[in-house]
């Protein structure tokens, strides 16, 4: 757990990176020859998606630590990471949808692996909340949430593979988004915006965690006073 006094530093870092990323994307990265300005959403969409994966992965890791080592607080950390992961996942769907509208003229494209995968993950992790909130808080809820979170990280690569191999039965490959040849400045802009997203996610994670911990502390205190 982050010491409380580091949180402002982390928030400042996130803000600085965001400003740098916006500046790099707007002024330094070249305008795409084919897609024009709209391609710039790539610098937002892909880092958000990668950050969502990182959050789901971290949530599963904290879940695993809870099951394995009974680490104090790991359950709450797992939940907060997945909660943020779902928010970043929803942003991925939204930005992807905008990109699809601009590139292909439709709000939804089944041919985009990333979008389909995020739809599956969005459904999966929404069910995580249904599961979690239909169990009384306590060790059992922590266990079931953690097991489900671990299933999530197994589902990500397996679904990705499934969507890939389904191409030849369901959809012809119309668009190859993999491995865009990035120039030096494009790559720099991409990396900085990714770092900015990760820093933003880390900041939000610690803020939410601190809030939830404070809530729990308050409840304990209230109980100690009333009993």
């Amino acid at each position: 757990m982050l010491p409380a006094n580091r949180l402002p530093a982390l928030a400042t870092l996130a803000l600085g990176l965001m400003v740098a990323a916006v500046a790099l994307v707007a002024y330094v990265a070249p305008v795409d020859a084919n897609q024009g300005l709209s391609q710039k959403i790539f610098y937002f969409h892909v880092p958000v998606a990668l950050t969502a994966y990182a959050l789901f992965g971290w949530g599963a890791w904290r879940g695993l630590r809870h099951l394995w080592k009974r680490e104090q607080g790991a359950d709450l950390e797992s939940y907060v990471a997945i909660h943020l992961g779902v928010i970043f996942g929803a942003m991925t769907l939204l930005t992807g949808s905008i990109w699809a509208k601009i590139s292909w003229g439709r709000w939804w494209a089944w041919s985009s692996d990333q979008l389909v995968l995020f739809l599956v993950l969005f459904l999966f992790y929404s069910a995580y909340f249904m599961l979690r909130f239909s169990i009384e808080p306590g060790p059992q809820r922590a266990n079931l949430s953690a097991v489900y979170a671990v299933f999530g990280v197994a589902l990500i690569p397996v679904s990705f593979l499934a969507i890939r191999i389904s191409k030849d039965i369901i959809h012809p490959v119309v668009f190859k988004s993999t491995g865009p040849d990035m120039s030096g400045t494009m790559f720099l802009a991409f990396c900085v915006s990714w770092a900015a997203m990760l820093a933003l996610a880390a900041t939000l994670y610690h803020v939410e965690l601190a809030g939830k911990r404070l809530d729990a502390r308050l409840k304990e205190l209230r109980e100690a006073l009333t009993s």
Binding site: A127, Y128, M130, L131, Q140, V147, Y148, S159
Partner: peptide, 28 residues
């Protein structure tokens, strides 16, 4: 898992179907 929750049978399809999408893809 669903048995341990309050929602029981209601919950099972919700947590089960997203996990079976790869099975459907492979099966089809």
């Amino acid at each position: 898992m669903a048995t341990a929750s309050r929602a029981r049978e209601l919950l099972l399809p919700l947590i089960f179907l997203p996990l079976t999408i790869p099975i459907v893809i492979g099966g089809v």
